[in-house]
């Protein structure tokens, strides 16, 4: 099993110590972990050209770190998006990363439980987790809205949302969610 953390926290974010502790805990349990520090990566926002679906299927036309995001996400069993909540939602840095992994799915539509969603391109996709750092203005309603949107996003990325945790949660709790997924 491999766990990947997409870390969109700043260098002084409360996300960093908890990610470090989580990785230590998981490593201790024999689970491989990886981390992408998004602020150190270079990827443009998706421009919605759909070339990754209809021109160079499976691959974005931008030659930047978007390929790294796709490859690393695909080759993980669990992807944790670790982000500060800014204006009631995970960071633009995290959202831009998420927008850039759509080459992993197929443009074709299919009926999933009475709703239209995209088909798989690959056999297997990782489970998604959310690790959120609240801001001064983050309230419970924000967390509910984020959770509901990410459940939808996971569904559209042929994944499912395994957990939503705050940086105040215990590392053991989070590790157990991952191990028992």
């Amino acid at each position: 099993m491999k766990v990947l953390i997409l870390n969109s926290g700043g260098s002084d974010s409360a996300i960093n110590p908890i990610v470090r502790d989580l990785r230590d805990k998981l490593s201790g349990d024999g689970i491989e972990t990886g981390e992408l520090i998004l602020r150190d990566m270079n990827y443009s926002p998706c421009r919605g050209c759909f070339n990754c679906w209809v021109k160079t299927p499976g691959r974005c036309v931008f030659k930047d770190d978007g390929d790294v995001l796709c490859r690393e996400v695909l080759h993980s069993d669990y992807v944790i998006i670790a982000s500060p909540v800014i204006m009631g939602y995970p960071s633009a840095m995290a959202k831009n990363a998420l927008d850039r992994i759509i080459p992993l799915i197929h443009p074709y539509l299919e009926d999933i439980d009475g709703e239209v969603h995209h088909m798989k391109r690959y056999e297997k996709y990782p489970v998604m987790g959310l690790l959120l750092e609240k801001s001064g203005d983050t309230d419970d309603e924000d967390i509910t809205i984020i959770t509901d949107i990410f459940q939808r996003a996971a569904l559209n990325l042929q994944s499912r949302l395994g957990f939503v945790k705050l940086t105040t949660s215990s590392v053991e709790e989070m590790a157990n969610e991952i191990i028992n997924n």
């Binding site: 926002p45 998706c46 919605g48 204006m87 939602y89 960071s91 633009a92 840095m93 959202k95 831009n96 990363a97 998420l98 927008d99 759509i102 949107i149 990410f150 939808r152 996003a153 559209n156 990325l157």
Partner: peptide, 13 residues
Amino acid sequence: YVDAMPGSVKEFF
């Protein structure tokens, strides 16, 4: 975009 606003719109927010 992926069930929400595009990342660039979130930048603006």
